[in-house]
Amino acid sequence: MTQKAIEFHNISKKFKHAQYYAVDKVNLSIEEGEFITILGSSGSGKTTLLKMVNKLYEPSQGSISLFGEDIANIDSIRLRRKIGYVIQQIGLFPHMTIAQNVATIPKLLQWNKKKINDRVAYLLNLVGLDANDFMNRYPSQLSGGQQQRIGLARALAVDPKIMLLDEPLGAVDAITRLSLQEELLRIHGGLNKTFLLVTHDINEAFKLGSRVVIMNSGKVSQFDTPRNIVANPADEFVYSLIESSRSQEQFWEGLR
């Protein structure tokens, strides 16, 4: 039996003073090396689900295991250092250079200088930026797309087995978005890491995900490969999602 990378066991989350469960009894099992996308509208609980994996949120009920180990038993700092985390606002530290940003965690782990420099150079090249050119710049000197590449490099710094990406391309323009999607697929393909990416864009979810989680008001509507979802929508919500995307396509076709 192969070890599952991420398992959600009956996980629920209700925020203080909230009436409804943000995440409601979710069960998912994710293999190592998969690229999972979580699709849902705002308020569907997709980001909440993601943030419980690196313990930014504590679940109200249920448990999450990474490679068979219940994260409740892992110290949150140690856990987070093993998980890459990318957010929509990118969150590069404005007072640090690109190299310092990427090296943040390696430095905290007291790697030696040479190892850090090599790693930074490797990562910058990996995300498609010239290391010598970018190393000593500050985030404010970069475009949004370039910043998010750095955000990705920083998240990959200590070679985490799992990457959490919370709408990483939500703030970049449409064209940059497409090229970064390709980049994500390329990076994922070469590294055998498990990616968990949250998005509200159905095209992005179906393009990137080897399997897609569709969430609606805290519950998982369907979890399957894009092909299967399109062939057999599990419920009314999934069906209408696909239909809306189809009608958009027809609109474009009509313009030809």
């Binding site: 987070r80 985390y85 606002q89 990118i90 530290f93 905290l108």
Partner: peptide, 17 residues
């Protein structure tokens, strides 16, 4: 900004860091 703090925690920084 809150997202920078979240980013820092998400990377595995302790409160002091």
């Amino acid at each position: 900004p809150g997202f920078l703090i979240e980013s820092a925690y998400g990377m595995g920084m302790t409160e002091r860091q």
